[in-house]
């Protein structure tokens, strides 16, 4: 980073400005992607299409069925567990942020027992699902 060489101290940036930056950065990346695709469109050849050319690739075989048909998703139980654990993590993050601070304030044991109970209930759920064979590929 050239910039780090120039700077003595980090400039004070307002909280809202940061998210304006996120937006601006996003716009720049979108602009880059758009420019890439447009340039590719201008440079790349575009030859006459034919029926065979528009076919999907299936190692040389002629496709017999439409891929857009009912498809068995074998892992839907995992998806349910994923939802539960994702929400669990959303609850654990704020706890983790203030845990160290709460120890210095003498609230450490309270926080610890609280999270033990919370995670224990979820871990029991995982163990139950495991025992019942939900974590098996059916």
């Amino acid at each position: 980073m050239t910039l780090a060489l120039l700077q003595g101290a980090a400039p004070e940036i307002g909280y809202g400005t940061l998210y304006v930056y996120v937006g601006l950065f996003l716009l720049l990346i979108v602009g880059f992607v758009a420019a890439t695709l447009v340039i590719a469109r201008l440079i790349a050849p575009s030859r006459r299409s034919s029926r065979a050319k528009g076919q999907i690739y299936e190692t040389g075989e002629v496709t017999v069925t439409d891929p857009w048909r009912p498809f068995p998703v074998r892992y839907y139980v995992f998806a349910l567990l994923f939802l539960i654990f994702d929400v669990e993590a959303a609850f654990l993050y704020p706890w983790a942020v203030i845990y160290n601070e709460s120890i210095t304030q003498g609230m450490g044991l309270y926080m610890f027992v609280e999270v033990v109970i919370f995670v224990f209930i979820l871990a029991t759920g995982l163990a139950y699902a495991w025992k019942k064979g939900a974590l098996k590929w059916v």
Binding site: M1, L3, A4, Q7, A9, A10, I13, L18, Y19, Y21, V22, F25, L26, I29
Partner: peptide, 16 residues
């Protein structure tokens, strides 16, 4: 997009 929050050096991060 995530490179926005990566600190490269002291004071060298786009958006902290």
């Amino acid at each position: 997009l995530v490179w926005l929050v990566v600190p490269f050096a002291p004071n060298a991060v786009i958006a902290d």
